[in-house]
Simulated assay, not measured.
Amino acid sequence: MKNLKISVLSKVLLLIVASLFAGALFFPMWRIELEAPQYPEGLVLQLFANKIGGDVEIINGLNHYIGMATLHTENFFEFSILPYVFGFFALVSVLLIFIAKRKAVLGFLITYALFIVLAAIDFYRWNYEYGHNLDPNAAIRVPGMSYQPPLIGYKQLLNFGAYSIPDIGGWMLTAAGLILFFIIFKEYNYFKKNKS
Rank of each mutant, 00 (worst) to 15 (best):
I6T: 12
N159S: 11
V105S: 00
G161P: 02
L134N: 13
L114F: 14
G131K: 06
K11E: 12
S19P: 06
N63E: 04
I121A: 12
V117E: 05
M68A: 09
A113H: 03
L47C: 08
R31D: 11
L82H: 09
Y124K: 14
L180W: 02
L96T: 10
L134H: 13
I152T: 15
A113I: 14
L178R: 08
I6N: 01
R141H: 14
S93K: 07
K195E: 08
Y124A: 10
N137M: 06
D55W: 07
A138P: 00
P83T: 12
V17S: 03
P150K: 06
F98C: 04
P28Y: 12
E33G: 10
S80N: 12
I6M: 02
L96P: 13
K11N: 10
P143A: 12
E187N: 03
S196H: 10
L158P: 00
E78N: 02
G42K: 12
V92N: 05
A36N: 05
F115V: 10
G161Y: 03
I81H: 00
F21K: 01
F181L: 15
A176G: 07
I179D: 05
F21R: 03
M68W: 05
V117S: 01
K192D: 09
E129S: 12
I165P: 00
F181Y: 12
P136Y: 10
A22K: 01
N133I: 13
F88W: 02
G144A: 11
A138Q: 08
P40M: 11
L109W: 07
D135C: 08
V56R: 09
L173K: 11
H72T: 13
I32C: 07
L71G: 00
L9R: 14
F160V: 08
K155E: 12
P136E: 09
A175R: 02
G67V: 00
D167T: 00
T70C: 08
I6L: 02
I179Y: 01
I140W: 10
P136L: 11
I52L: 15
H72E: 15
